[in-house]
Write a protein that binds this DNA or RNA. Structure first.
Ligand code: MN
Ligand code: MN
Ligand code: ZN
Ligand code: ZN
Lengths: 157, 157
DNA sequence: GTCATATTGATAATGGTTATCATTATCATA
DNA sequence: TATGATAATGATAACCATTATCAATATGAC
C-alpha cells in the first residue's frame, strides 16, 4: 500500500487564532477556533453544552452539532481531552503540550482538584512496557472525600 | 441528628447465592444475585445489555430495568465496578475484596488488558493525602497500542 | 398469616450524542 | 481572481443508553 503525501502543502498561520488542528490535513475553521478558545478561557472542565454557550459569544450562531464535531476533532489532535464523570455528561478540557494532570474527584460534593506528579507518568510507562503496550496517554481519577466533606461527615456521627 | 440502627437485624445466609449486598439494609433478591453471578461468570467486562442476556439464563424473565438497578446497587456496595469507555456504553465487572486492577486499552483494536501493581495503590494514596483527600478508590486507564497493533502499524509504513 | 414496603417488569420518557442533508466556506488550481 | 472539488456547518431528526413511572409482586419483621 502506497500513501501519497502532498509535499507542497505548507503549514500556514491559522486564521482561527490558535492552531485548531487544521495543520493536520483539516481546513481552517473559525468555529473550531472558537471551540478551542472556549476550552482554554471558559473554565477548567466544560460540558459540550457549556462550550456551546461560551463559543457562541466568540462566534455567534455556532451550532451544537459543530461543537460536538469540533470537540471530537480537537481530542483527536491531542488539543483537548474528554473526561467521563460517573454521572452527567462528558466534560472537556484544553490539553496543551505542557505537563498533563490528573483529577481528585470528591464523591460527596463533586469538586474536582487537578493534580500533577511526574511519578505517575513514569509508573504508567513502566506498566505499559511490561505488557508490550506503546502508551499514548492515560487517565487517572482518584475518588474520595475532599477535606471539607470529610470534616462535615465526621461532625455528623 | 440521630440515626436509629436496628440492632436486632441479623445477617442471614442469603438465598441469592453470593451475598448480593442485601446484608446492608436491602432485601434479598434472586435477580440481584443473578446479576452478580452474570458479572463473575459472563466475562471480564460486560455491558448492561450483555449482563441482561447472561442473567436471563440464570433467572429467566429478568427485566433490563432491574439489571440497571442491580448494577447500580452492586456498585454502591463495592461488589461491582463501572467503567466508561471512550465510546460505547458503560461496562461492568465484578469487584471482590481481592486486589484491584487497572486497564490497558488498545486505541486501535479495543482490546483491554488487566494489570495489577501495588505501586499504583501507594502512589494514589500519597497523591490524595497531599491534597487532604480521603481516597475511597481510583481508576487508571492507560491508552495506547497493544503489541499486535503496534506491529501492524509499523508494517504499513 | 398479616402488613408495610422494597423490588420488579413493562414501557414511556429523558437527554446526551450522532446522522442526515442542503447550504456555505475553504483552498488548491487554473 | 475565478472556478471547482470538497470539507465544514446548522437545523433538526434519529439514535440509543439510561432513568422514571406505576401497578403488580416478593420479602421479611411481627
Ligand atoms: Mn482537568
Ligand atoms: Mn477489568
Ligand atoms: Zn485553524
Ligand atoms: Zn442476597
Amino acid at each position: 500500500m502506497i500513501t501519497i503525501i502532498n509535499m507542497t502543502k505548507t503549514i500556514k498561520s491559522c486564521s482561527c487564532g490558535p492552531d485548531c488542528g487544521c495543520s493536520s490535513g483539516k481546513r481552517c475553521s473559525s468555529r473550531r477556533g472558537a471551540v478551542l478558545r472556549a476550552l482554554s478561557e471558559g473554565g477548567p472542565h466544560l460540558s459540550a453544552e457549556e462550550v456551546h454557550r461560551f463559543a457562541g459569544k466568540i462566534r455567534p450562531g455556532i451550532g451544537i452539532a459543530t461543537v460536538y464535531r469540533s470537540l471530537k476533532c480537537l481530542c483527536g489532535c491531542g488539543k483537548a481531552r474528554e473526561l467521563k464523570p460517573a454521572d452527567g455528561p462528558a466534560v472537556y478540557e484544553a490539553a496543551g503540550p505542557g505537563p498533563r494532570h490528573d483529577h481528585l474527584v470528591c464523591v460527596s460534593c463533586g469538586a474536582i482538584v487537578e493534580i500533577s506528579d511526574p511519578a505517575m507518568g513514569r509508573l504508567q510507562a513502566r506498566l505499559a512496557a511490561r505488557h508490550g503496550f506503546s502508551p499514548s496517554g492515560y487517565r487517572l481519577d482518584i475518588y474520595g472525600n475532599c477535606s471539607r466533606c470529610a470534616k462535615k461527615d465526621r461532625s455528623k456521627i
